[in-house]
Amino acid sequence: MNIFVCIKQVPATETKIKINGSGTGIDTTGVKWIMSPYDEFAVEEALRLKEKNAGSTVTVFSAGPSRIAETLRTALAMGCDNAVCVDTPEEIDSFQAAKCLAEAIRKEGKPDVIFTGKQAIDDDCAQVSQLLATFLELPYATVVLNAEYGSGQITVKRETEGGTIEIIALPTPCLIAAQKGLNEPRFASLPNIMKAKKKEIKTHPMASLGVTDADRKIKLVNMQLPPAKAAGKKLAGDAAAQSKDLVKLLREEAKVL
């Protein structure tokens, strides 16, 4: 099987956010970069599928500036066979990212399945999976909790509100966007980490794939930290007094009821 995975490098979840000078992004000084956590589920699922189908390969793709090589190597260390990188400027939008990935994928051949994470934890757009699938004219399912692999078909369970689960049958080739709980991502062993350091990563500059600034649809501007909240007040008195007081405040002061 030809298995593809798309990943994104993002700042570590606990990074303290500082806005850059132009308000279009964060200040990346001292930021620790990681693979977006949902993408880890995608990589793990790809590897498990490979292990169940002898002779399969897993190719991992990512689009971003040169620092993303480190994250591609993490994917290689987990067990991916090949890595492809699209070199882009620091700021691109979901549309451009999806187009880069689509073109890079077209150059690599026809996949049986593409795995992605449901959203990247930096911009939280949750668009690239669907854009990519639509560009490649592949059926897709997002927020996938579980996948069962049959011949020429993958049956997935999708999570929606209130715990409701949709069960969808997708013919291959298709795209699956992983939700937390799809699997437990493996921890790369030291020998694999060492091997991954030496592997070659195929690189395409963004322009060479025909993606330009003109493809951009969205710009983020005026990025700010949320306004600091005024200090809260602790209500005095016994439980009865506190309850009365709270209801009054919520109605008259906060005006939420």
Binding site: A12, T13, E14, T15, K16, K32, I34, F187
Partner: peptide, 17 residues
């Protein structure tokens, strides 16, 4: 392990704090 690698402490707290 992830926290130690990314946040330089065993907890999911920002190293900035």
């Amino acid at each position: 392990f992830k926290n130690i690698e990314n946040n330089f402490s065993p907890w999911a707290m920002s190293p900035d704090e």
